[in-house]
Write a protein that binds this DNA or RNA. Structure first.
Lengths: 216, 216
DNA sequence: TGGAAAACATTCCATTCGGCATGTAAGTTT
DNA sequence: AAACTTACATGCCGAATGGAATGTTTTCCA
């Protein structure tokens, strides 16, 4: 029997005998290995100390393979941005599974944003963001992707609380996102966790007040 | 006549004839030149691309002189943190000269925090902060200095609005600082300035409401 | 005033970086 | 199964880095 038939979609894809993989499979495999390793390096070593060599080692991939997929380091980083954003988005969507209705949505929504924008993955985002400030190429790669993440998350909230006024929702959302990014920075260098929680609690109370129309 | 008398404090310090400077003068001069150049590099090149060589060039100082003052690069960065914080603090104090009384203080205070924590100098702080996340030595140098800046600024506000309840002031202050740090991040990679201004305006309104006791 | 010490300058080195060139193995097409 | 394309591996190079070693100038102090 001929071992495998060439192009046709194979139901056993990914379960084939060892040592025989589709090109697409191989490609995808090492590609994500590289991107995941990149994110690993960013979170663990920071942007400054992240070298392509280290990435290759962690990905279990040769230097040549890396260059085959991403010619330059900048290209790799740009791809990592998108990969990273996708993972964060998936994280958020998963966590948003069972959110209550408004007004409890305000409180739990803030928690959700915290999880998405201050978690481990967001540390990597910070690294890339800060690096992008002085790297126009990286900035160009980040801007649209990041904007898309922000907007899609906002849409998510909008669908969860359709009765909430558009303007109120947007204001609270963006204020929360930026506040939490600031708090995330504080958390990353070991600020006082207790005070952060207090601030978050206060903000929830205030946001609820805004939602109810006490101010604004 | 003997050219100069040795140790005694000299009224002409800094204005002596060319080529004859006190050791303390020389020392201070190149030290701050190095530190200023470091901050320049951080704001302009970012942490990753900041090399001691470039710092030396910008400071107009030889590599040997740099090593004489700061044995290692980490040492230089640590010193730069304090230098940077001092400059920011001076900036804030200067800008706080003529602040109105509460409740206008709320609005203008937020502007003041924006100037201090989102200005050019704060970009350098961001670089160091993010770098410190994966550099314990740098983190150890930053933490106390940064905490001191935060607290001293808070004290400044407290002295400006003594009739404002302690708890309200602190909450609004720290919420504002963290919000603005998030917004500063957004600004640094070229986010939408118009939306940032809108958010800041909204936040002022909300903060004023909090101060008046509408919420909380 | 002369020697010690501090400040500053120059040169060199081991290491590491990103990227290129070239070679080999695996998968695909006809 | 032969020709071909894609994926991966290895070795190397010039550039740049941080730091050490050593030499020179300036200030200080007895």
């Amino acid at each position: 029997m001929t071992a495998t038939q060439p192009t046709q979609p194979d139901a056993l894809a990914g379960t084939r005998e060892r040592g025989h993989r589709t090109q697409a499979e191989r490609r995808e495999r090492t590609r994500t290995a590289l991107l995941d390793a990149t994110i690993d390096c960013l979170t663990e070593l920071g942007y400054a100390r992240t070298s392509v060599q280290e990435i290759c080692v962690r990905a279990g991939v040769s230097k040549g393979a890396q260059q085959h997929h991403f010619t330059t380091k900048a290209e790799l980083m740009a791809a990592a941005v998108e990969h990273l954003t996708n993972r964060i988005q998936a994280e958020i969507v998963a966590a948003a599974g069972d959110l209550p209705d408004a007004p409890d949505l305000v409180e739990h929504g803030i928690d959700l944003i915290w999880q998405g924008f201050a978690g481990t993955l967001s540390a990597a985002v910070m690294e890339l963001w800060v690096a992008a400030r002085t790297d126009t190429e990286l900035a160009a790669a980040i801007k649209p992707v990041d904007k898309a993440l922000g907007r899609s998350t906002l849409r998510l909230f909008h669908s969860l609380a359709p009765e909430m006024p558009q303007h109120t929702l947007e204001t609270l959302y963006w204020l929360t996102v930026n506040l939490i990014r600031g708090l995330a920075l504080d958390a990353q260098i070991g600020g006082d966790a207790t005070r952060r929680n207090q601030l978050l609690t206060e903000w929830k109370r205030i946001a609820l007040g805004v939602y109810r129309g006490d101010v604004g």
